[in-house]
Simulated assay, not measured.
Amino acid sequence: MNKKTIGFIGSGNMGSAMIGGILAAGLVPAKQVIVADLNKEKLAEMKALYGITTTTEGREVAQAADYLILAVKPNVYAPVINSIKDLLTDGKVVISIAAGQSLAAIAAMAGETVKVVRTMPNTPALVEAGMAALCPNDKVSEEELANVKAIFESFGQAEVVPEYLIDGVIGISGSSPAYVFMFIEALADAGVLAGLPRQQAMRFAAQAVYGSAKMVLETGKHPGELKDMVCSPGGTTIEAVATLEECGFRSAVIQAVNDCVAKSKAMSQKE
């Protein structure tokens, strides 16, 4: 990878997070990262922060990049791809990070022979703790897919999944940080109600969620088993768990994810 050029069209939060992770991991040197955006002020900030090459011309990025990341909103994919598709030669891999843009839709815009990896990262990439799904088309080689995986693992974790599962991934990973933030906020509100200062309540709540997730990942134990370890007979925790069950906590989460998946499918069909 250290001889490859990684290009970004778009420099929003996710694009910026990816660039930071790539450079922090030493995946490629800064001189081999190039970013295009119409926001000159944002480009100046990124150049000063990372020492990367910046431009307002997407075609310049498409020309230079071996791995081209489309970090723009889904609604501008068509005009962006149309403006660069003549530059998407056999040696380049196009990486999509947008919801609702299927491999077939991108191929229809860019050309059937273009190598495409559809991905779904999430916002914890901003703190190098992201999770991403990768869905390559059949033009992408194993080596190229390994390089794409290395890009995403520079700021978190990544798994290759078949595209038909991507809507489920969006429901439980791409969108789920929002649900977790709501949970942390609710926990903190309850702490404030119990008398804790707001900032202290937020820290206790967030660290509890962080630590619990770490236990699931590092122990390999089922979440139900870890939950049971906290619940003493007749104790405070089982009292709270009983209330959550009575209020439909788990069924509400499942329904929320189901609705998110349905929305993702509808967006893909619309595209």
Rank of each mutant, 00 (worst) to 15 (best):
S176M: 11
P197A: 14
A36P: 04
Y210F: 15
A213N: 10
A132D: 07
G174V: 10
G220Q: 07
N75Y: 14
G58H: 00
I238H: 06
S16T: 14
E41S: 09
A186W: 05
Q255D: 13
G10Q: 04
D228L: 06
A208L: 11
L27F: 13
L27Y: 07
K40L: 02
A65K: 10
V180R: 09
K221W: 05
E45T: 04
E163Q: 05
V216C: 11
M46P: 02
T55N: 09
Q199W: 02
I6C: 07
V209W: 13
V140M: 06
A186M: 04
K149P: 00
S173E: 10
D66H: 13
I170E: 00
I172D: 02
E45Q: 12
T119A: 09
F8S: 11
V148N: 01
S96V: 05
N82A: 15
L49N: 08
N258T: 09
G168T: 00
V160A: 03
L87Y: 10
V216P: 02
E225A: 12
V216I: 15
A252V: 09
Q255S: 12
N258D: 12
P162I: 04
V257W: 01
K4L: 07
V261M: 03
I9Q: 07
M18N: 08
P223M: 10
I151R: 02
Y50H: 13
F204S: 08
A208Q: 11
P79T: 14
N82P: 03
P162H: 15
A129L: 12
S154F: 06
L68I: 03
A107D: 09
K265N: 04
Q207M: 13
I52G: 06
R203N: 09
